[in-house]
Amino acid sequence: MIEIVNLKKSFDEKIVLRNVNLKVYDGEKLVIIGRSGCGKSVLLKNILNLMQPDRGYILVDQVPIKKVSQRDLFYLRKQFGFLFQGSALFDSMTVAENIALPLVEHTDLSPKEIKIQVAEKLEMVGLPGIENLKPSELSGGMKKRVALARAIIMNPKYVLYDEPTTGLDPIMAANIDHLINELNDRLNVTSIIVTHDMQSVSRIADRVVMLHMGMIMFEGSVEELHTTDNPIVYQFVHAKMDGPIQPKPLKY
């Protein structure tokens, strides 16, 4: 279980997260929604300690991730897969080298065994046989799926997705959502998905959290999300122009 307690994060004068409290239960698919720049990605990066909170702490399986040594931090990170918004594939490596990197670095598997595992994961994300291509030769959707294969190569306990369907066509987005569901079922991972794609929310979420102005504005099921009378959540979910959320980002 991941427990986020009183998390606060700001950049210079701008407060991005203020007193965020959230529990992520084992095996669930938690979707975090909110406007662009509301701190969703920052929250994900704090969970992995890629950014450090100004105040508050995060417990991963009861371990405070901010306070552990580098060795323990890396041990904890091995239990995570992280799908970055821009895929973050290593340009200088082939697809196979990208996916194999965690295995090469952290295991004693032979090249042959690594090759088999890479092929297996590529098959799982629906891209068999592209091992020798470079990231520059892939489309956006393919990059996301390769990045997903890399994220799950160590069979992680938690997978964090930062806007997995942004910039993809609806069919590819549906494919990625299907993959997320399948991974949860097949590998029994706990998933945290940051998105503002409401169709994805309906397809994948067990539970939804909405971040607004650095705070949790809503927490509940997809049904509750669609029936809530909170005007802010209603405006966001139904993509209305009129409402309490201003088109121009508010200063906070």
Binding site: Q70, F82, E105
Partner: peptide, 18 residues
């Protein structure tokens, strides 16, 4: 620098590689 701005450095960290 390019790796930093395209989150590849974060990706290395996330993969538990210093």
């Amino acid at each position: 620098g390019t790796m930093k701005v395209t989150e590849q450095i974060d990706a290395l960290e996330a993969l538990a590689i210093d």
